[in-house]
Design a protein around this nucleic acid. Structure first.
Lengths: 337, 337
DNA sequence: ATGAAAGCGCTAACAG
DNA sequence: CTGTTAGCGCTTTCAT
């Protein structure tokens, strides 16, 4: 049970003036006398008056909030994105409502509903691994709420999108392995319904192709976690078909592979060179340190939010949707050289 | 420019009935005829009507949102806490507004303001490293908004708090080192204005005391990051005063020390045993794997939120404030045995 | 320079 | 069974 907060009316009553005068005084309206302004702002201060943002939003039909739907906060990459988003939104005076989909489609749909009900002025989304149906995203658009997708994009969706050049980054990572003399390169791939999974595999394949190395379907293994990599490596060892290079869809997968190989007496990078895709602060910590693609999460967050705010604040109803492709850097470390 | 969303009025107009009837129909009020209900819910569906949560909040004086102020999302510990908070809040139908203080006092104060303006029904806070003044927290309380602090508590504050038993955990970590035969144990300590910094140091000292080891002030070094640990280790090496055990205030610090020592040819744990305090998923990844205290972030989040919701939903104005102390587990791994 | 009134979207007495 | 009215807290014409 909380006592209701002080309102403009309370101030008006205590000062024997009308609510509208208080409102104007608080906004420093030129019509109001200095004296009244003084009294009002003093009393407001004393009573710790806080304007009710809900009432304001209702009145102005502008909530000054944006929504964010993210698969899982507990990932370094995503939490860096959030930091970028928060910082830009904060600067612009917007509040962010963050929802986690927990990689569940149903929850993602529910999140959209919540955010729309809260009348957020725009929504940032990175879709869940489960998401194959995009109706909820189309619903956002058809209510004319600006929408920006990041990292996990949906091709063909009428919305701004920010991604990194996954294909290019994967290509460079794989080429780097090839240039190091590796020929038998295994790819630990991510879910293929996500574009990032496809793209990273694409880049891998392209590098092989260019180098004249025939791609072997058995070298592409769907594994995107420490555990899965571990098991996959065991199977490779049993089959006696050891690779001399591994390109993994994320760092933890790369590390899972690396540690398992090491436990079995293989040397990294001498026997097997490993490259990951950054999703943590792990790269400097492993032994040897892990070569990895830096995804610039914070930057992605700032850019996505800037695009969203631009849409929100723009007068013109329509300008073409944009897909920004950020460059990702391959950072070569000990695990591959 | 977004078109305004459909309201109850739109439905009323199109059906030639009053807004209140629509409202009641939507709430499945017994007074309304089946037929009307049918028509209303059908049209609502067709128009993709979404109740305006802002209007509802204003009306009911209940926003069904809670606020969260967190130092930095980009920490595994904090993001696990957030997950716990989100899950419990979601279950209870509450939306969470997350604010980052970025470890800045000023920003923390601003965050409180934002959340109070949004009329959140309760606030969860973990204070920033800079925070020494608690007026803003008292302000929350004096507006009767429930407040729960977690992890970084403020002794004496009239609010519920959830912490882990930092002192006890640090004590056990240090004792573990002593039991392993270590005598010259250095503590890499956190900021001493935070209780967790003090408590962890306390536990360390207690363990030494009990073991009859005289505490040496020079063995307590304020260092709470990878870099600082690195530099501190360099200084220790230069001074020729190498410890045989290190207890660090967090994992990255422990790892910074460990890697620096290894680079200098020291063996872990043979020459120096190391124990950290968990703030990531690093423990299993280092070589040797890192002994560390598991802080159970997710659990802390759920418990804090349950305490908050209990206050929010409780009819009784006052029941005593509670400080819950969670047990933290020392996980012994290769770096210390 | 200030007040009265209407309205943002919704609900809940109070009337019929 | 349904409509009218008032009001949540605030802003903003329109009067005065």
């Amino acid at each position: 049970m909380k006592k209701s907060q002080v309102t403009i009316k309370d101030i008006a009553r205590q000062l024997g003036i009308s609510a509208s005068t208080v409102s104007r005084a608080l906004q420093n309206h030129p019509d109001i006398s200095q004296e009244t302004k003084q009294q009002v702002s003093e009393l407001a201060m004393r009573l710790r008056y806080q304007p009710n943002a809900l009432a304001l939003s209702l009145k102005h039909r502008r909530s000054k909030t944006i929504g964010l739907i993210i698969p899982e906060i507990v990932h370094y990459f995503f939490s860096s994105v959030i930091s970028g988003i928060e910082d830009v939104a904060y600067e612009a005076g917007f509040t962010v409502i963050i929802c986690q989909s927990n990689e569940k489609y149903d929850r993602e749909v529910a999140n959209v509903k919540t955010l729309m009900a809260q009348r957020v002025e725009g929504i940032l989304v990175s879709i869940s691994k489960e998401t194959n149906d995009y109706q909820h995203l189309h619903d956002i658009r058809s209510s004319d709420t600006p929408l920006v997708l990041f990292d996990r994009m949906v091709p063909g969706l009428l919305a701004d999108q920010v991604i990194i050049d996954d294909r290019e980054a994967a290509y460079r990572a794989t080429r780097h392995l090839i240039e190091g003399g590796r020929r038998k390169i295994v790819h630990f791939a991510g879910p293929q319904n996500l574009l990032i999974g496809q793209q990273r595999k694409e880049g891998y394949l392209q590098a092989l192709r260019e180098a004249g190395i025939a791609a072997n379907p058995e070298w592409i293994i769907e594994a995107d976690s420490f555990e899965k990599a571990r098991n996959a490596v065991f199977r490779l060892l049993e089959a006696g078909s050891l690779p001399d290079g591994i390109f993994a869809v994320n760092d933890l997968t790369a590390i899972g592979a690396m540690k398992t190989l090491q436990k079995k007496g293989l040397r990294i990078p001498t026997d097997v060179a490993v490259v990951g895709f950054s999703d943590g602060r792990f790269s400097g910590i492993t032994d040897p340190s892990l070569s990895s693609v830096d995804q610039h999460g914070y930057e992605m967050g700032t850019i996505a939010t800037e695009m969203l705010l631009k849409r929100i604040l723009s007068k013109e109803n329509e300008y073409p949707f944009e897909t920004k492709v950020l460059h990702a850097d391959l950072i070569v470390r000990g695990s591959s050289s």
